[in-house]
Design a protein around this nucleic acid. Structure first.
Lengths: 251, 251
DNA sequence: CGGACGGTTGATCTCATTCAACCTACGTGG
DNA sequence: CCACGTAGGTTGAATGAGATCAACCGTCCG
């Protein structure tokens, strides 16, 4: 599983970072850009299905997803799995391991992914010399927190149909903001197993619930993934709205 | 609801902060202590049951809980409520509102509480001049995240009994570390309604589940609260362990 | 003294799990 | 080239965990 890694030296320079160009991300100052380009130590490539970070590990690195889809999850001893959140380009993973002792969750790639690798040791330099970036880091952590809040509300209090609608609307929104989805590419690369493990449902019931959403014309299920036909319809079913897409930081 | 506030000028000086003395919190440097004592603009007192922060508000403040128990929650339009996490002394609330636009959840007092009030505007000074405290802020955010991860695992994948055991073990642990509980005072001040809304269960089923835990001698339910008799027993039922209690930052 | 709040219990019902097939697409090795 | 295994998806039937409904009790409080 965690075998197909190619850890290469920096390939995409931060100066030409494809993410930075997108209007969804806040621009760096020249100074910050310079720092980040030194902070970045390399890139990590991993195939779909490979485990990028293992729960319990003490990694010397933290990462920003540069390309592809991934997800964070936890498992109980007997194998029950809960997917905690999804990772799209611009999201940071491994911060927990960096500021606390060890990782409390694992991360797995949904598609082939590329991650920027940063050295944990240098994190304190970021805090010391670049308060703007430090603030951004906190911003990202606060945002992850508010996403988890919404997921918790969903799993705890929404019905199966509402949950499924919420999740797909959420994934569509995130994918769109990260530039992974647009009018042509509307394909969210998850299996029904992923949906089940995110929503806290069995796979059979997930299947039946998704089928209902299909029949209502809100989504279309394809091979290993889902096409969101009516994002707003899903939002209505879930009684959720994503709020204005804000410019977000990137490290 | 949000009526019984007494916002007073600083009463407890940070120099004599009762929390700082406890060995669970990391000590401040003289410089940091000085900054924080200026950062703090006052105290907020609220009665049990009062709403301290309302979802959707744009508060000019952020807070650290100095005394008492509180909780964060979200509600759906039709009234379904999900409790997201509990707040104990030393925990910060309102950071979301400070770094992002507005609060995405509400906060309510479980007992009479005292909060230290900080001015949001000054937050950037903290990042600029006190990287150690900025790091601590990130540490706190990362920790909140890992707690939410565990809650999500619980609500999504644990059985009702496991969930209840986890929650009570968790609350006991947090209360103990924050100095709210000890050999004499073992009373966790929640109603069964709070437990239900945390676990995503109905109140009836929560009652029956808690009863089973009582019968097994793990807890004892009292008026408006619960006494944890066997924390380790609960941890075993839930298949959860809290890990080494680490020294934590405080702002 | 009435009402609100918190807790308790039994009966019934339903949403979701589990079990058990079965189907298709895909990849691998004989 | 076919045979087989695996991954993902689908469907019906049986079962069960938890929700809902409906009482009822004690305590506190205005």
């Amino acid at each position: 599983m965690a075998s197909d890694f190619r850890k290469t030296p920096v390939r995409v320079s931060c100066f030409e970072c494809p993410l930075r160009q997108k209007k969804h991300f806040r621009p760096f100052s020249a100074d910050e850009l310079n720092f980040v380009s030194h902070f970045k130590r390399g890139e990590l490539n991993a195939d779909a299905g490979s485990t990028v970070i293992v729960e319990g590990s003490h990694s010397a690195h933290l990462y920003t997803l540069l390309e592809g889809w991934a997800f964070r999850y936890k498992i109980l001893e007997d194998g029950r799995r809960q997917i905690l959140n999804y990772v799209v380009p611009g999201d940071m993973v491994g911060l927990q391991g960096a500021v606390m002792a060890e990782m409390q969750h694992s991360v797995e790639a949904l598609t082939p992914v590329t991650l920027c690798v940063f050295e944990r040791k240098r994190l304190f330099q970021l805090f010391e010399k670049h308060s703007g970036l430090a603030f951004d880091l906190t911003w990202l952590a606060a945002r992850e927190e508010s996403i988890l809040d919404e997921h918790l509300l969903s799993v705890g209090r929404r019905t199966a149909t509402e949950r499924a609608a919420y999740l797909l609307a959420f994934l569509f929104e995130r994918g769109r903001n990260a530039g992974l989805l647009d009018e042509e590419r509307r394909h969210v690369p998850v299996t029904q197993m992923h949906v089940a493990d995110t929503l806290g449902l069995s796979i059979v019931h997930t299947n039946k619930t998704l089928r209902k959403l299909s029949e209502r014309g809100l989504i279309q299920w394809l091979d290993r993934g889902c096409e969101v036909l009516d994002p707003e319809g899903l939002q209505n079913v879930a009684n959720w709205n994503p709020g204005e897409p804000k410019v977000r930081p990137l490290i």
